[in-house]
Amino acid sequence: MLVTERKPVDEIVGFLDGEKRVFLLGCDGCAAASGTGGEPELAALEAELAAAGVEVVGRKVVDFLCQKALIRAAVRPLAERLRSVDSVVVSTCGIGIQAAATVLDVAVHPACNTLSLGGIRGEWQGEERCLECGQCFLDATAGICPLTACAKQLVNGPCGGAKDGSCEVEPEVRRCAWDVIYERLERQGRVDLLRREGVFQKDYAKMRPPTELRGTRRWAIDLREEKGGEE
């Protein structure tokens, strides 16, 4: 199971960069077990966003957000409401966020950092992959993970090695991640996102799961059970 932590609300509001109307998506799988993506957590996130002046138009917890078919089915009745928002905030693991970004094809912002596999890998059929970097960059990359989709894990733009849209490393099988990111942003009319100030630096310390969480196979669930009393 993928273990996630909620990003601070200020970081999420920073991603919105002035967007005022959002929809929240959560996940009843690993994210709910991690205490980040279930219904109570979405309600809490909605309150935090409201306090920061962001209108939450609606929220939906999908059974497994890593399953694109389930996302498609879940959002079908919500199509109209989704059209009326500036963006969608997704509170789950990197794979769920990438899957939502692909299915919805609108601006999607991550509300979580993915910390670890927690011993057992969730099952999914899609091509999305997450490296549990603990510092989710998906907001800056149109919901395409630069750490798994780019052969050099480049977070500040392409390397210049792409040829005919293919990555220099495995041109037969791998499209240049930044090519795909660019195309998606162009389609969404959001290329300016790439012009945002600031240079990303990967923080590898965040790839090590927090000390108190290490040492047990099912530590995420254990932790949640332990913490249960405090909530």
Partner: peptide, 18 residues
């Protein structure tokens, strides 16, 4: 460095600005 004849020259210019 920069690649003037890259496929997405816009992306090159954005990275150049960075």
């Amino acid at each position: 460095v920069v690649t003037p004849e890259a496929e997405h020259v816009d992306l090159q210019v954005i990275k150049m600005e960075k």
